[in-house]
């Protein structure tokens, strides 16, 4: 047992039954992730990327195999325990930004801390800190509808990091953004990864994202076909204007 292991999947299999027919969304996937990784799942549409993230994020359960996340066996968790794991240790970033429209930027980022029962004064400080990270402190009182797509995704990042989770799962985070905004948020995430040591796992087919990855796992038809590690991500040089 490695002590500093974050995620370990053993023969992780997810089967969807469509009537008679059985669909293997994931087939015996063996993967492990350590702290501080900046990894991405790539592959064609329908290859099982989202399915993998959802299971690791305890939003779904495997059909077969074992999944260990932060020392917990996902397949054995109750609803409550799964929610607890997500609440404390896992942040999600989705393709659509999914901010709560009636709440301000500040309140959106505050929500995970309310769930955690953090006292108000500490919440305020931590929310502002998270907003500083994504350079939106001055927009704290705006509504999501008043922000651009890129800004919304930055708020979503702030919301994911505000509780300082060990793991952030990002499913196509750049799919709705233009190139400039995509690079922008990727650089923020790289910085978070470097400075806070947060582990990032992406699901993407966006070349821009792939350019930043330190590890690229290729899925085809629910199977891992390639698992590559880059010592220094190729794109980083070009964009390394130093934060």
């Amino acid at each position: 047992m490695e002590n500093n292991r974050l995620i370990l999947t053993q023969k992780l299999t997810k089967i969807y039954s469509m009537g008679q027919h059985q669909l293997y969304a994931l087939k015996e996937v063996d993967l492990s992730f350590g702290p501080g990784e900046f990894a991405g799942l790539v592959g064609p549409s329908g290859s099982g990327k989202t399915t993998f993230l959802n299971i690791v994020g305890s939003l779904d359960i495997p059909s077969k195999g074992k999944v260990e996340v932060l020392g917990r066996q996902i397949e054995t968790l109750s609803h409550k325990q799964a929610a607890e794991l997500r609440k404390r240790h896992i942040g999600f970033i989705f393709q659509t930004f999914n901010l709560l429209p009636v709440y301000t930027v500040f309140e959106n980022v505050e929500f995970p801390l309310i769930l955690l029962g953090v006292p108000a004064s500490e919440r305020r400080q931590r929310v502002m800190e998270a907003l500083e990270w994504v350079k939106l402190a001055d927009r704290a009182n705006s509504r999501p509808s008043q922000l651009s797509g890129g800004e919304c995704q930055r708020v979503a990042i702030a919301r994911a990091i505000v509780k300082k989770p060990a793991l952030i799962l990002a499913d196509e985070p750049t799919a709705n953004l233009d190139a400039q905004n995509s690079h922008n948020i990727l650089q923020i995430m790289v910085r978070l990864n470097q400075e806070l040591g947060t582990t990032f796992i992406f699901a993407t087919h966006d070349e821009k994202v792939i350019g930043y990855l330190k590890r690229k796992i290729t899925l085809v038809d629910g199977k891992v076909t390639k698992d590559e590690i880059f010592s220094s991500p190729p794109v980083m040089e070009g964009h390394h204007e130093s934060p």
Binding site: R86, F94, L115
Partner: peptide, 11 residues
């Protein structure tokens, strides 16, 4: 969905 993902219990 977002609230569930953020770790709010279904109940």
């Amino acid at each position: 969905g977002v609230r569930l993902a953020m770790g709010e219990d279904k109940g």
